[in-house]
């Protein structure tokens, strides 16, 4: 299957077909998620109404890590098989992941101000997510820093793989260190620790964010593919 979709033309056909599906899923789940998170879920007994910010904060943080894993995985494919489709997926994922990371940091900060009384604390979770943000920025700048695009792609891929060490640090930072940030309460061995009235909007938003990632990923990969073809044509023209 991997080889089948590694063909750029097939990949283009597939993304063009899947793009409207991702759009519909995004709009439905996010619409429902917004309705549930703003109107249909109760305020938390400890955090009162601010718990609603969780419904945009937590999915953004999940997606920040998900995108990084996707980025690192496709970077590994770029380095091992030198495949163009993987390169396009990696290059298209980076800006989306950077946006999710920025949102996770910004909404977390907006939640922290009323709850912790400060916009920012230098604990392990926040610091490691900030490093993640810099990794995304570094990836994008390094990718575009070379005159020869394949050099940039490979150098950035190596950076992405080196940075993957940060992902488990983010995941376990709340367990390894005593921090203000609360530990995971949805993904646990003995089932989620939050009530279903809050789990519904959270999961809806999470599905919505994931579908949104794929939606934008499909748009961006089609654009990158066209840009790639333009470059190839230009080179062919220049060589006569």
């Amino acid at each position: 299957m991997f080889n089948y979709f590694a063909n750029p033309t097939r990949f283009l056909r597939l993304t063009s077909k899947l793009q409207p599906i991702a759009m519909v899923v995004t709009l439905i789940t996010m619409g429902a998620g917004l309705y549930y998170s703003l109107f249909q879920s109760p305020p938390d007994y400890q955090q009162s109404e601010t718990v609603r910010m969780m419904y945009v904060h937590v999915p953004a943080a999940w997606m920040a890590m998900f995108c990084y894993v996707a980025l690192a995985a496709s970077s590994a494919v770029v380095l091992i098989w030198r495949h163009m489709v993987a390169d396009i997926v990696a290059k298209s994922t980076a800006p989306i992941g950077a946006c999710f990371t920025f949102l996770a940091l910004a909404t977390g900060s907006l939640w922290g101000k009323p709850m912790w009384g400060t916009w920012w604390v230098w604990d392990a979770r926040l610091t490691s997510v900030l490093i993640l943000f810099f990794l995304y920025l570094g990836y994008m700048v390094l990718y575009n820093a070379f005159d020869e695009p394949t050099r940039g792609a490979r150098a950035a891929a190596i950076l992405a793989i080196v940075g993957v060490i940060n992902v488990p640090i983010i995941k376990f930072s709340v367990d390894w260190w005593n921090t203000l940030h609360q530990p995971a309460s949805v993904v646990k061995m003995d089932g989620p620790a939050i009530h279903s009235s809050m789990l519904t909007p959270l999961l809806l938003m999470a599905v919505g964010y994931t579908a949104f990632y794929f939606w934008v990923l499909f748009i961006r990969s089609r654009a990158e593919l066209s840009a790639y073809k333009v470059r190839a044509l230009r080179i062919r023209q220049a060589e006569g």
Partner: peptide
């Protein structure tokens, strides 16, 4: 409950 501005900015920014 007094947190409207924070919640609005979080959703709005997202």
């Amino acid at each position: 409950g007094g947190y409207g501005s924070f919640i609005c900015s979080a959703f709005g920014l997202s």
